Computed example of a mutant assay.
Amino acid sequence: MKQNFYLRSALSVILLMHSVASIFSGDVNDFGRLYLDTIGFKPFGLYLAWAVKLIHLFSVFLIWSDRFVKIVSISNLFIMVLGIYFVHWKNGWYVVGGGSNGIEFNVLLICCFLQLIFTKYPYRNRENRSW
């Protein structure tokens, strides 16, 4: 994990905190039942919410183990784009300051995952590949 060390570290912390905090607080269940179900995902809202949180959680370990980094990045990029569309777009740009719950943080995360996708990884051997 020599390439993009600081970027991967920051993304790992963000994904870890975003997943673990909502899992232990029960917010993931509320998001699934009280939000996703009400915007048309019923009866799958709860399952989608858990899928998102588990993808975030497993992404941390895959990023740190330097495995499937591109697949992890594409998966999280997809989640971030859907998050903008379904949750954050209506709140504008700003997360804090000029507004709240906006898209600015998701845009930054999307750019970070794009950097991981388009980074060329040297392949020393088949076992140490970052797909």
Rank of each mutant, 00 (worst) to 15 (best):
R67V: 05
W50T: 02
S65K: 12
E104Q: 10
Q3W: 04
V72M: 04
L16S: 10
L11R: 05
N106K: 11
M1K: 11
V28R: 01
F86I: 04
Q3G: 07
G97L: 02
D66H: 13
V107P: 09
G98M: 06
N91G: 07
D66E: 14
D37L: 08
R67G: 08
G32V: 04
D66V: 08
K53A: 11
S12W: 05
L108H: 01
I55L: 13
F44K: 04
I79W: 01
D66P: 03
T38K: 15
K120I: 06
N128T: 13
R126K: 08
G32W: 02
T119P: 01
W64C: 03
S22K: 15
F118D: 06
R129V: 13
F113Q: 03
H18C: 02
L108M: 13
F41Y: 15
H18G: 11
Y94G: 06
Y121E: 11
H56R: 07
S25T: 15
S22P: 02
I63S: 09
L15P: 00
L108W: 00
V52G: 03
R67S: 10
N76Y: 07
S22D: 00
V72C: 08
L82W: 07
F5S: 12
L7Y: 03
P122C: 01
K120V: 09
I79M: 00
G45D: 04
K2P: 00
G92L: 05
Y47C: 00
V20L: 14
D30G: 12
G98K: 10
I117P: 05
F44A: 14
L109P: 00
S130W: 06
G99S: 14
I14W: 05
D37P: 08
W93P: 03
L34F: 12
Y123M: 14
Y123F: 09
V96W: 13
N125C: 08
Y47I: 07
